[in-house]
Amino acid sequence: MYVLGAGILAHGIAARGPEGVVFANLDLRVEPGSLTVVAGPSGSGRTSLLLALCGRLRIITGELDVDGFPLPRKAARVRKLIRPARLRPGCELEDRHRVREAITERRLISGTNKASIELGLELVGLDVDRSLLIGELPPEERLLLAVGLAAAPAPAGIVVDDVDAGLTQSGRARAWAALREVTGIGMTVIASTTDRPAGAANVVRLPAGRFAEPTAEIEMPGEAGR
């Protein structure tokens, strides 16, 4: 499997949620086939930024282009290019479903064939008992299942929320390694976390609190430790 990943370019973007502005005056650049990490504490707008980048939250100012498609005008097209693996709340696997039920549901929704599903799960290194409830899986395996299923239809990119939530140190290492495997086939990955993972090159740092500062710091490759 090889995918032509999506590139993303944003300048001065802002978005508003039910309680007001969630991020503003944000610039970022995402190269096709790269892993970009959105880092910040709870309430900093991480999920909202992921929603905006995959065409599911309308920006109120600025310019946002995903693979040549401007948002919000081409939001429907962008939603087909960038698929959510997990977005909290509202877009995550149901704990009460069995693994095989989640696989069947994803095949029906996305039109993905069985072979592609198997490739997606193999890509993230996941081999689990499919009779188990999703809620019975360890947290990292629930996350990897969501990522593998999202990657199976071979979209240009995926977004993954709260990568480090509930994971042990070894679970986090496994999750980030799997996301890097996904970029290895050319797919763009944008993932949110509270703490920057070791070795991350492209990091978008969001400030604490809902719109606590007018800008977010963008840390590009080669800038770490300066």
Rank of each mutant, 00 (worst) to 15 (best):
V99W: 07
R100D: 14
G111R: 05
K114G: 11
A75K: 01
R79C: 06
G90H: 04
N113I: 07
P89I: 05
T112E: 02
I82F: 02
A76F: 07
V128D: 00
D127E: 09
P84E: 04
K114A: 15
L119G: 11
P89L: 03
L126K: 00
K74Y: 13
E122C: 07
C91M: 13
R100S: 14
K114L: 14
A76H: 08
L87M: 08
K80G: 14
K114I: 13
G90T: 01
A85C: 02
R73A: 14
S110N: 11
S116C: 08
A85W: 00
I82H: 03
I117N: 05
R77G: 09
R98C: 05
N113T: 06
R98W: 07
I117M: 06
R86M: 07
E92T: 09
P84R: 02
I103G: 03
I103L: 03
G120W: 03
L71E: 02
P70I: 01
E94L: 14
S110M: 11
A115E: 13
P70E: 00
A115P: 04
R79D: 04
E94N: 12
F69T: 07
T112K: 03
A76I: 06
E105R: 13
I103V: 07
E118V: 10
G120L: 02
K80V: 10
L87G: 07
R96P: 10
I109T: 10
A75F: 03
E122Q: 09
I117V: 13
L126W: 01
R106L: 14
V128F: 01
G90C: 02
C91R: 13
E118P: 07
I82Q: 04
R107V: 01
R79P: 04
R86V: 12
K74G: 08
R77I: 11
E118S: 13
P72H: 02
E122R: 09
R83S: 06
R107P: 01
E105C: 11
I109H: 06
G90A: 05
G120V: 04
K114C: 10
H97D: 14
E118K: 11
L126P: 02
R79F: 05
A76K: 09
P72N: 01
E94A: 15
S110E: 13
T112W: 05
V128L: 01
E122T: 09
I109P: 05
H97A: 14
S110A: 12
R79W: 04
L93A: 10
R100T: 11
R86H: 05
G111K: 06
I109M: 08
